[in-house]
Design a protein around this nucleic acid. Structure first.
Lengths: 212, 212
DNA sequence: GCCGGAATTGCAACGTGTTCTAGTATTGGC
DNA sequence: GCCAATACTAGAACACGTTGCAATTCCGGC
């Protein structure tokens, strides 16, 4: 990745809070929005390799240095984009209870919908998945945010009132398996059907006990 | 990753079979061995970033071009190193049945031993995990090999005579969770204890039904 | 031993992520 | 409206993965 040794940044990162940002002047929020938009567009068109920092900056109409001020690396940028998208999805999902008689059914429905949506934009999925998996400790905060969002999505689907620790653990395991399968799909080691089957198996094994 | 568009290589990759190589002249096997050795040494010392192609080539005593002839990219190199190590581990494991009264116990034992071993060399683990997760389609074959080795290790631990499809599926799910947790540990999102706990939970949920 | 092809070497060059610098614009406080 | 601080811009420069190339060495068949 041609990283020079990270020094303590001369241009300190502005306080960009983790969730949807209301930080900064309107002009700054607008810049941030345009940067993420450019990122998504480039990722959708050509995947991870097409998200080139110079290209993102140009497309967003900001200087390269400014891009780095908002997002300290390409991986930060892509993972932030993932978190952004995910939080939009979650917002929609949480507005209503998930249909389905059992937790297993509901979780599978949510997984299925998301998987289908992701497979509709394979390049975008590839870009985000690879960034997420390549992230090192410096991106831990953004990665954690994505994990939390995923967990919330799955516990919501499970339909528990207040998620217990075990509920959360199970949600995390399902999330792990989901991600692994997404990676396998992205690298063409698994077909869409494989992914659905493996998710179904996992959910069945993990959740069948809780549904009578 | 500073990849130029991959063209069909002017220097074709020599036929390096997937498993332990007996291909090529003794000098070639020796070069390959030295390259992998250098890779492991550098990875152990400084992780993914320290495995620099020029450094690997120098340490192995080959020209940069030769290194690329043996391994067409840094990720190939690291994943091949992972497969190499894994196959050595598997060889040892398969020599004897795994002790333990139940499949769950045996699987946990194997996971535990490996996890402890991996955590002893955190940089090496980081390098290999990140390469594995970052691998794109061009590395699919090597990645698949690693998956197969992991699956074999886990089905062996499960102790089934001839692994059924469901056995393999379960082994794969456990492997997925294991990997996710390794990644979380590498990026310091999970402690060693977290990893053990989550593996225990997963194995319990997935395997408790099969042990009477 | 000798030949031709393949492998290896040493090194230059290129692309893209990242950093740095000097100058210009914006902004918030008064 | 003015000042200082902060943000932004353009562009150069650097690191490292990767590729290209000309010269040399090695190897298998004779």
């Amino acid at each position: 990745m041609a990283e020079r040794a990270h020094r303590s940044p001369a241009t300190p990162r502005p306080v960009v809070p983790l969730s949807e940002v209301e930080e900064g002047s309107p002009a700054q929020r607008e810049r941030r929005r345009r940067i993420l938009e450019a990122t998504l567009a480039l990722a959708t068109k050509g995947g991870f390799d097409a998200v080139q920092m110079r290209a993102v900056a140009e497309r967003a109409g900001v200087a390269l240095g400014t891009l780095y001020r908002y997002f300290p690396s390409k991986v930060h940028l892509l993972v932030a984009g993932l978190a952004h998208e995910l939080s939009r999805v979650l917002e929609r999902i949480e507005r209503a209870p998930v249909p389905g008689a059992t937790a297993a059914e509901r979780v599978l429905l949510v997984l299925h919908r998301n998987t289908v949506a992701l497979q509709r934009d394979p390049h975008l999925t590839e870009a985000m998945t690879r960034a997420f998996m390549f992230a090192d400790t410096s991106v831990a905060e953004e990665v954690r945010q994505v994990s939390r969002l995923t967990e919330r999505m799955l516990t919501h689907a499970m339909g528990v009132e207040e998620a217990s620790d075990e509920d959360k653990d199970i949600a995390r395991v399902i999330g792990d398996v989901w991600l692994s399968n997404l990676v396998a799909w992205v690298t063409r080691r698994a077909s869409a059907e494989d992914v659905e089957n493996r998710l179904a198996l996992t959910v069945r094994l993990l959740l069948s006990a809780r549904d009578r």
